[in-house]
Design a protein around this nucleic acid. Structure first.
Lengths: 221, 221
DNA sequence: GTAATAACTTAGACTCATCTAACATAATTT
DNA sequence: AAATTATGTTAGATGAGTCTAAGTTATTAC
C-alpha cells in the first residue's frame, strides 16, 4: 500500500494526462516523465498487477478507481505543500513547484495533516486548483472562465488554469494576483482578446489563451 | 556532488559513530543502519572511491575531510528541520525525528536556507546539539557533562546527547526539560550515579549513562 | 489495399542497493 | 602459541528502475 516515489510519479502523470476520456498513451506518458517507452511499458504492467492501471497490449492506458484515488492523494499532498510553502514560509509561487515535487513523496501522513490543519483545510490552491480531501474526492467548484464573460462584467480572479512558470511570470508582470477585481471593457470578437481594467483603472489587453486560463467569480453590485 | 539518500545515510551514521578517534567499525555501522556487513563493506569501497571515507581492508573506517563536511551538511539540514517542525509547525519533540530523517534528503538548498532564515540562524537545536553552519563548521560550545560535576554544583540543563526516542521518553517521565536548574546532592563513586534535585526540591537518582548525556552550564551564585 | 510511418512490445543489458553463503583475517581465550 | 570466536571480505544472486536494439501491431498515406 505504500507506493515508491517512482510509482507515485507515474500515477500523478497518468492523472494529469487523463482528459475527458481518461485515456493516456504510452507515448504521452513517456514524454511527460522523460522516460523511454519500454520502461513506461513495463511499469504499466507492474501497476496493472497492482490494480492501479487498466493495461491491455496496444490499448490506451486508464487509471483504475484505486489508481485514481492514489493519484489524488499525491496531488493533495503536492497542493497542500505548495500553499504551505507560499503562505507560511514566504516562497514565491514560481519556485514552489519543484520543492513540492519532492515533499509530496514523504512517507509521513502526520506531516500533511499538520499542514492541512495549519492552513485551515483549504479546498483550493494558490493557482486555484482544487485540493482533493483525504478520501481523494474533490469539491468541484465550477468557476467561470474570463473568456466566457461579457463587456461590463465585474469579476474577481479566483484561480488560474495550467500553472507553468511562463504563465505565472506573465501574470506577475501584469500585477495580476488572485483576488484582483477585473472589469471587462471590451472584447474583440475575431480573436477573443479582451481589454480589461483592474488595480485603479490600469488597462490591459489579454489574448484568448490567457482569458481561458483565468477563472473568475461574478462580483455582486 | 549530489549524493544519494543512501549515501547520505551512511555518511550521517559514520559521523554519529565517530568518537574521539574518529574510527568506526564495519560492524557498528552495520548495526546502526540495520544493513548487513557485506553491503556496508561494498558501500565503504564506493565511498572510498568518492574520497568520502578512508578505507583499507581490515582497518577501521574514517571519514575524510570531505566526508565529514558532507555529513555535517546533512546533520545541519536535519537539525534545522527538527527545530522548524517543533517551533513553527507545532509538532512534539518526539515525533519530529522521523520526519526530519526524510526531509533532510530533499535536494532543495533554497528550502533549508529559508528554514534557517525563518528560525533566525540558530546555532543549537532543541536537544542542545550544535548546528553546523553552511560551510559545515560548528560553533563548538564545550558544554560540561553532568557526570563531570561535583556535589553542591548548581547547573542549568542546556542540551542532551544521543537523542533516541527512549531517552527522550525517559527525560519526559522525569519532567526534565531544557533549562531546568539542577543541584547535585550526592554522587556514588562506585557507579557514577548521582542524586540531584530540581523543580522545587524533587529528588531523583540518575545512572552514569544518563549523566553523561546531560550537558549543563554552571549557574553563577 | 498495400506501403510507409508511428506507436507499442519484447529481449536483454546495466546500475544501485540490498541479500546469503562461504571464506579470510584479527582478536581472544586458554 | 593453538584453538576458538568475532569481525571483515569475496562471490554471486535479487529486485527496482532504467536503457538500447530489434521486433510487432496499428495507423496513415497513397
Amino acid at each position: 500500500m505504500p507506493y515508491s516515489n517512482t510509482e507515485e510519479n507515474y500515477l500523478k502523470a497518468l492523472y494529469h494526462l487523463s482528459g475527458e476520456s481518461g485515456e493516456v498513451s504510452v507515448k504521452e506518458l513517456s514524454e511527460k516523465l522523460l522516460i523511454k517507452m519500454p520502461t513506461v511499458n513495463s511499469m504499466m504492467k507492474k501497476l496493472s498487477e497492482k490494480k492501479l492501471v487498466h493495461y491491455e497490449s496496444y490499448k490506451p492506458l486508464r487509471l483504475t478507481e484505486i489508481g485514481q484515488q492514489a493519484a489524488m492523494q499525491i496531488i493533495r499532498k503536492h497542493r497542500l505543500t505548495e500553499i504551505f510553502l507560499v503562505e507560511k514560509m514566504g516562497f514565491g509561487c514560481e519556485e514552489v513547484h519543484e520543492i513540492a515535487e519532492q515533499i509530496e513523496h514523504l512517507k509521513a501522513p502526520h506531516f500533511f495533516e499538520k499542514i492541512d490543519e495549519i492552513l485551515g483545510y483549504p479546498k483550493i490552491d494558490p493557482h486555484g486548483s482544487p485540493i482533493p480531501d483525504k478520501s481523494g474526492k474533490i469539491d468541484i467548484v465550477a468557476y467561470e472562465k474570463l473568456s466566457d464573460c461579457k463587456v461590463g462584467d465585474r469579476l474577481k480572479l479566483v484561480a488560474v488554469i495550467h500553472t507553468e512558470k511562463e504563465f505565472l511570470a506573465f501574470l506577475n508582470t501584469r500585477k495580476l494576483v488572485l483576488g484582483t477585481i477585473i472589469t471587462v471593457l471590451a472584447i474583440e470578437k475575431f480573436d477573443g482578446s479582451m481589454t480589461v481594467s483592474y488595480n485603479e483603472s490600469k488597462s490591459e489587453t489579454f489574448s484568448l489563451t490567457v482569458n481561458e486560463r483565468l477563472l473568475v467569480e461574478r462580483c455582486e453590485r
